[in-house]
């Protein structure tokens, strides 16, 4: 509950949240590490799992970018809900498209 109040204050009133450079650097290092993992996994010949692994890592990276660099973390709830709805729809597109691709 407290967190909701806090995020509302951040999102709608004064945008007073401050994120230290340390956090940004940590997130950046995380992204670099995940990129390295993507490249490594691509070379491991995991068959159909390769695509799944690459997509999972890409999702994590996207979330990190959206959450920290695009400040979704500090936005109010309605923005988060809208993003979640869009992601859900996107995920549905993927699952249904893969019901074709994976079973051909």
């Amino acid at each position: 509950m407290e967190q909701t109040h806090e995020s509302r204050a951040f999102g709608t009133e004064n945008h007073s949240h401050t994120v230290g450079y340390g956090t940004y650097i940590m997130v950046w290092l995380g992204l670099v590490a995940l990129t390295a993992i993507t490249v490594t996994v691509a070379g491991m010949h995991l068959g159909s799992l390769t695509l799944l692994a690459a997509l999972t890592i890409a999702c994590i990276k996207t979330s990190l970018v959206a959450y920290y660099f695009m400040h979704v973390k500090f936005d109010n709830m309605v923005i988060k809900v809208f993003i979640a709805v869009c992601l859900l729809i996107f995920l549905t597109f993927w699952i249904l498209t893969f019901s074709d691709l994976s079973f051909r």
Binding site: I89, T92, L96, S99, D100, L101, S102, F103, R104
Partner: peptide, 22 residues
Amino acid sequence: GYLVWGHHMFVSGMSDTARIVF
């Protein structure tokens, strides 16, 4: 309406699973 697009593709070479789902 978002989830039914595959019914335009029943003879396009789509998988049987997808055809049944759509």
